[in-house]
Amino acid sequence: MLRSANFVGLLYLNLMSDVQDYIPIVLQSLVVLAFVVGTLVFAPKLGPKLSSAKKDANWECGIEADGNARFPISVRYFVIAILFVLFDVEVIFFYPYAVNFQALQLEGLMAVLIFVGFFLTGFIYVLKKGALEWEK
């Protein structure tokens, strides 16, 4: 209990930044936003505008477009997406540890080695299950 409270505390101390540090980022995002919106609004007014049924159709290499493009796709992509979410969350846990590596000393190292063990167990399970085999 105490240990987990400490860990959250460490995370808080290190990731808490002075709010002022972020003001320039807000300024930069405003400049970028103005540029992007300005270009997207004014650039289309410069070119010619012509339209007809054939011209406005999707371009599929000169062949008549057949049906809608929003059709079901291979389930493999969804498996990859779900695995990414799982493993990325685990990878995120390493970041606060890496920052506090020197402070947590040997105890922290042991804990993380055990955590890597869990990570690898899950990873090997996924490999053996064949979830990453693209073609059977």
Binding site: N58, W59, E60, N68, A69, R70, I73, Y77, I80, A81, F84, F87, D88, V91
Partner: peptide, 24 residues
């Protein structure tokens, strides 16, 4: 996805799946 073109859709799915895989 918004283009409603099959090539674009394939490309979009491939790109996102590739980028998330290498991010790990």
């Amino acid at each position: 996805w918004a283009s409603n073109n099959k090539y674009s859709l394939f490309s979009a799915i491939r790109a996102s799946s590739q980028m998330i895989s290498y991010e790990l």
